[in-house]
Design a protein around this nucleic acid. Sequence first.
DNA 1: CTGAAAGCGCTTACAG
DNA 2: CTGAAAGCGCTTACAG
Lengths: 340, 340
Amino acid sequence: MVTLKDISRDLGLSVTQVSRALGGHADVNAQTRKRVRAAADRLGYRPNAVARGLKTGRSGIVAMVVSGTRTPEASAHLLEIVMGLSAEFSRIGLRFVLHVAQPDEDTVRLHEDLFLAGGIDGFIVISPQKSDPRIAALTRMGAAFVVHGRDPDQAHVHVDIDNFEVGRRMTDHLLRLGHRRIAFLTAGDNTFFSRERVRGLKRAYADHGLDAGMARVVGLPMIAPEGQRAASTLLSSKQRPTAIIAGNTLLARGVYRAAAMHGLQIPCDLSVLAHDDDLELFATDTFDPPIGGTFAPLSQAWVSVADTLQTMIEPEKEGLKHRILPLGFQIGGSAKSNSD
Amino acid sequence: MVTLKDISRDLGLSVTQVSRALGGHADVNAQTRKRVRAAADRLGYRPNAVARGLKTGRSGIVAMVVSGTRTPEASAHLLEIVMGLSAEFSRIGLRFVLHVAQPDEDTVRLHEDLFLAGGIDGFIVISPQKSDPRIAALTRMGAAFVVHGRDPDQAHVHVDIDNFEVGRRMTDHLLRLGHRRIAFLTAGDNTFFSRERVRGLKRAYADHGLDAGMARVVGLPMIAPEGQRAASTLLSSKQRPTAIIAGNTLLARGVYRAAAMHGLQIPCDLSVLAHDDDLELFATDTFDPPIGGTFAPLSQAWVSVADTLQTMIEPEKEGLKHRILPLGFQIGGSAKSNSD
DNA sequence: CTGAAAGCGCTTACAG
DNA sequence: CTGAAAGCGCTTACAG
């Protein structure tokens, strides 16, 4: 292993100067800097992150702890998220590692263990639950962390989209098209984003002077088979909805399948909208007709999450601190006016 | 942050003794040890892994670098592997972290970066390719690592099953039942395990005095849709096979589907065997009829992988060094005698 | 522009 | 059984 000492000996310089030269500090003779750089390359020097970490208190590593998932779709979803985060962090010079816990493992303790042992500069938390204990623990320990999404019960740095608007805009779009019986497939009530979206849906009804009681809200795991099952039930019901809003494109995929099984054409017999995270694995380009709805690429969120966490870890590099990301709307071809 | 110094000050002891007491060394007065333990708990002491790492050269962290995958099934497969490894490593007191690379990212470089920066004690490599460059790089750097599977072109520590036997036993079983036209669905030719299995298949034919030319070997990604497609093609062919061997249960799932679509009953019209890794996500208890074939739980492999890597990292804890794991055979109900 | 020195928190010969 | 000291490899005031 080549150390600063080796370089300093090789060059007859002090370790101090070598360190400064490689660190790119201004107060080093340009000549010297060049010589040091050359020697470091020649000897194959690699800075020891552990030693640097002990001195500076920073390891350059950020972590995320997740629980193992139960379904292929959820796994694929998780891995795409991890890939997106990894890419952003490596772009800004931080290393992102994942710790996958057992389903029955205590993730709060894992956060504590990882942080208190040192060596982790910060954390990412995704899919926060109501009064999320991970957020409470990280806050208590004074760890740097960014949450994707939001827990309204605690104050914390977060990056999110305006989920109220997600619910409001899609519902408004359908109401304008004349739909009244709208079903909304979304996650359970213990997620803030879902509650916000439902609140947006209700607001849209109210804005149109309508009773939101006409809408049906269904809470479910947000994967295709569940979407298919729920849509199937809805489409078999007496007062079947004329439009379905899917919380993500996986659910929408299930809705499309259910519609096909019921012999219903989209958008003629059934309008469908979905919120689209723009995930590659569940690309919407295979939707026929093309799906409409709100649009906010998760990849944007990762840019923001990574930059924000970096700013918390390295305050000297003042970066952006986006919090609420912009929301788009795609018309698509999956919704049509209704005159029931 | 509470350090050894804080405890030593609190107790009026030297840092040396505090360190030894907490480290469980024998040469410390039992009384003292107790007092130190109590003080550490009271003050909330957590050893600083970074400092320890600088001194001992060990971080207690092992890593695996994988490329992001493209399909939900492959993602689920990967995550189950990661969960299994995580569980084993945490059982023996090591932390297992995952780095998920972009599909286009240079994983060799990632291994180098992670290792040369220090802070990673060892690596796990899975799914080795022919002349795998990751293995070459880790060997060159002198890193501790264990490969699950084997690269015949390089010497390295590995944990594996006897894949020759996997191919030989399943083929032998079918040949004894009178099958002659056997199709074998397996991975591409660039994997050692697949070549070994094919070699085993040929040996079984030879042992029965038969020409292995009657067998059909199909290389493909080992997931259900591919198995279904390949089986469908085979079952439509003129000289359709009377038996299909699937390299894993995902492929077998696809074969079952294809058989159903072709109106073929298993095992009456078609015999099917599969190698079963005993993964929870692709449990075989939903196979009707129950699938037969070779059986070797991956969870066993992880026990062995973790113990072996620990032995390489901490030679003082001499542990087991299983290399080739035992192989079982399940009769199941998916294969039947043939008299074509 | 350069170097000697201190120190991050820990472990471990060494001497008593 | 106990403690003073050295040192892992780095960074960074401080003094020149």
